[in-house]
Write a protein that binds this DNA or RNA. Structure first.
Lengths: 338, 338
DNA sequence: AACAATGTTGACAACGTTGTCAAGCTTTGG
DNA sequence: CCAAAGCTTGACAACGTTGTCAACATTGTT
């Protein structure tokens, strides 16, 4: 089965290959009737442009890279899915590149993919989007890149994020509106800049309501289920036990909830629990966890849109390429009146 | 920063581009001293072959496709990771292609990626690896493909799988060795061929031990956490409640365990629970779930190896390209003596 | 009606690599 | 020592597309 090339289409349509090229790429300067004729032939022959020839000639690869430190996480899966669908929409393809900053030689790996695949752009997720060395490799290679939820997007990088502070504040205000006054908080790891912003939002809400934050009820976790279990114990042993626990992510919220259940403390009747992230297991648990949904897939899709935008390639510092997306609070069974 | 091409290397090393090409591709017929000289220049100039030019010329893409129905699942993540690392090892790249059999037009999607990207091979995961129409598209396009855990691998497809039957039997025998005699079983959905094999293994073990399987204690779930919750209720309401529950996957095992906990039934003291898959949350739960680890990443890596093997491209029906990998039983806290 | 501006088209040469093939070397065997 | 066989090397032409540019056709302006 010989493959159909642009020449076959051109011959059959009675035009030059260049004209066919113009039609395929939606360029101007083609008479409507010719355009239609060509499109008809394309459909008839079931022609598909060879991506490699196209890339070689145009020096655009139609390939975007997704740089990710832990490709097995649920977070990675969501981001990847969002990016994938949007790439498909834009006739791009996505190549996933794991980057292990802990392993020597990762720099060469990254440079290799950039120069051999000639990526048209890169999407970089936390926490590696905050690594200066990685970003400078992109700069050197002249590869446009968009960071997802970075702590401080440098000049020249696009960025997409959500307002962690506002989201956390919203959640805290919701707990307050339910009548909770003793609210414990489980922090995320210090390296994770978003979790600091979440704590800010939490504190702002309490402060605005005229409440003091009891620092014995603010504990640092590491995002793991296990740390939620353990810190839950500590919180429930407090002299004045909290009536609500706000954890910086769902895994820790889940852990705290299991601890409560082990002790026979009913959720949400005797204790409200809420998390952050809306991971799959927060829906699988019982009761389901009240949480904040991060628009992970949407952020990835937005990143793709920015990268394929021709304007971005000229002027990557333009403020239009700093985009904040809306989160959503999802009230489920794990929270109730105090 | 002009990009370095093969000509630059050739000029600097005082040889022809073709010779450089030979060195890069590890071909024969190059004198050792010249080979070394070229390699030195490659390193000096930091030269990387342009993947597109290479593909265009050689009509090999150095690209493998991973065809997957639900790219957001934890399963997908594991498979993808395994494939990714192995691709990197073999200097291939991986393109992930979601296939939604429920959506019309998916055929065109698939044909599109095949003919436009000229994939060198495809890895197909369950359940879509059992779809005849999909496989025939690969055949038409002449794209070699390897199926992961198919129900019946057709001629001409490579296949990698594990022995679900033996694994389930092993698990059942372990429960028997703990003294359990009333063992309930939660089946997976009928469409999932592996879960039927698991049930076979379960029944074989009981039969071999001279025990009857009580069919009231064999219930069909749908792999969801929710169905584990519900079927757990049913099983624990049985006149003679089981002392162990063997679920066809971890999510359902988790559900059953939560049900038991809600009723104040201690796991594993009063009830043993085990699952299948070793998903992340089976480790996160408390107690952790005894389960069977599927070598998902390893199967994917093996699939990559098969696809890049030049022999496979000639004779895809060769029995060497049917590969069974070993599973592992992982005993954790959710099982104990009857 | 003449001329300029604008729109449409195709010839041709890239893009960077590898396949083919033939030429010039070596080695081997008698 | 010579012929045959094998090894090493490079010239050249693909691979399938798009960028450039010049030619030609049409439209608009005066």
């Amino acid at each position: 089965m010989k493959t159909v090339t642009i020449k076959d289409v051109a011959a059959r349509a009675g035009v030059s290959p260049k004209t066919v090229s113009r039609v395929i790429n939606g360029e101007d300067h083609v008479r409507p009737e010719i355009r239609e004729a060509v499109q008809r032939v394309v459909a008839e022959l079931n022609y598909r442009p060879n991506a490699f020839a196209r890339s070689l000639s145009s020096s655009r690869s139609y390939l975007l890279g997704l740089f990710i430190d832990d490709p097995v996480s649920g977070y990675a899966a969501e981001v990847q899915h969002g990016a994938l669908l949007q790439c498909r929409e834009r006739s791009y393809h996505l190549v996933v590149e794991p980057v292990d900053l802990g392993r020597s030689g990762w720099q060469e790996q990254v440079r290799g993919s950039l120069s051999s695949l000639r990526l048209d752009g890169a999407i970089v997720v936390p926490p590696i989007c905050d690594d200066g060395e990685l970003l400078s490799i992109f700069d050197e290679a002249g590869v446009p890149h968009v960071l997802i939820a970075p702590s401080h997007p440098p000049e020249g990088s696009g960025a997409v994020w959500m307002d962690d502070r506002a989201a956390a504040r919203e959640m805290a205000e919701y707990l307050l509106s339910l009548g909770h006054r003793r609210i414990a908080f489980i922090q995320g790891p210090e390296s994770h800049s978003a979790s600091a912003r979440r704590e800010e939002g939490f504190r702002a809400a309490l402060h605005h309501a005229g409440l003091e934050v009891d620092d014995r009820a603010v504990l640092r976790g590491d995002f793991s289920f296990r740390s939620g279990l353990e810190l839950g114990e500590v919180l429930l042993d407090l002299p004045e036990a909290p009536s609500a626990i706000f954890a910086c992510n769902d895994d820790m919220a889940l852990g705290a909830m299991i601890t409560a259940m082990k002790r026979g403390i009913a959720v949400p009747d005797a204790l409200s629990i809420c998390g952050f992230d809306d991971v799959a297991s927060s829906r699988a648990a019982w009761p389901q966890i009240t949480t904040i949904r991060q628009p992970n897939a949407e952020m990835a899709a937005a990143a793709v849109d920015i990268l394929v935008d021709p304007v971005f390639r000229k002027d990557s510092a333009h403020p239009a390429f700093r985009l904040m997306l809306a989160h959503a609070m999802i009230v489920r069974g794990s929270t109730g009146p105090a």
